[in-house]
């Protein structure tokens, strides 16, 4: 790689890190305003979601259903504050909408709704379903010869769902190399650590056994994330790609990190102030 490109990558990484910090601030802000929501899994997904929306995805905020856009499905739908933050910051809808999360008649429902939120490509909320829909979208892309990629995001707890493995088998069977699955492996689910509740490790070996191309990485190392996503999107060798993002639930807010209760709890005013100070580096 030439020096100039290497510097380019450094700059991209550095800008994305700043953006990810803003995404996290918006996540905490909107969940605090709503006084309900799921901060833990939104924060763990913040880095790769930022890389996708601010670097990787071919999208047009002014034309959310642009036919050749890259698709994204957040199958772990409860983490949608991270999605809403990215979409608003990208310009799919006004930033002020973030204050309406989970409010009556808001375009920002408690779980993603493709009919209400510009930029949301699939309605989700019942775990395990999003990857199947992503397979359907990727099949359509293959069928019509259009050159878009489909990204699906699942949680590691979500891998408990049998439908994930039905979908995983079909994605490999249909050679969907236009499909990229990101596993947000934050190691926590509702009832405790994934290894204690229902251990799905080794996740990488499972997807390899299902004939996927698998990359495992530090989901908070923006350089690794960016490089892997770029490669996954480019890779066209007849295999779907699974990126296992090793993450920390609640990442970025010290008292939320790796603490189970922050799966689905809003910060109170005091916690909010503390979280904001940390995220803003004050």
């Amino acid at each position: 790689m030439s020096t100039s490109l290497a510097i380019g990558l450094d700059e991209r990484v550095s800008q994305l890190e700043d953006t990810a910090r803003m995404v996290r601030i918006n996540i905490i802000d909107m969940i605090h305003t709503a006084q309900s929501g799921h901060p833990g899994g939104a924060l763990s997904a913040a880095d790769f979601m930022t890389a996708l929306y601010f670097d990787i995805l071919d999208i047009r905020p002014e034309e959310p259903r642009w036919v050749d856009r890259d698709r994204l499905i957040l199958s772990k739908g409860h983490a949608c504050p991270v999605w809403y933050a990215c979409l608003a910051m990208k310009g799919f809808f006004p930033m002020k909408e973030l204050k309406t999360l989970r409010k009556f008649e808001s375009i920002l429902q408690g779980h993603p709704d493709m009919n209400k939120t510009p930029g949301v490509d699939m309605t989700t909320g019942s775990l395990g379903q999003g990857l199947s829909a992503a397979v359907g979208m990727a099949l359509e892309g293959k069928m019509t010869g259009r050159d878009f990629s489909v990204f699906a995001v699942v949680g590691d707890g979500e891998l408990n769902e049998g439908q994930i493995w039905e979908a995983a088998a079909s994605a490999a069977m249909y050679e969907l190399d236009n499909l990229v699955l990101i596993v947000d492996a934050n190691r926590l689910q509702m009832d405790g650590h994934t290894c204690d509740v229902m251990n799905m490790e080794p996740i990488d070996a499972k997807f390899e056994a299902f004939n996927w191309e698998v990359h495992s990485l530090d989901g908070h190392d923006m350089r690794q994330v960016l490089t892997a996503l770029e490669q996954a999107k480019r890779q066209k060798d007849g295999k779907p790609v699974c990126i296992i993002a090793r993450t920390v639930k609640g990442k970025g807010v010290s008292f939320m990190e790796d603490v189970r209760v922050w799966h689905g709890k809003a910060p109170n005013d005091r916690e909010y102030e503390r979280a904001m100070k940390e995220l803003k580096g004050e």
Partner: peptide
């Protein structure tokens, strides 16, 4: 279950 999910993706 996957069949109906894939069908939904195709429909989308």
């Amino acid at each position: 279950a996957n069949m109906v999910g894939v069908a939904s993706g195709l429909s989308a």
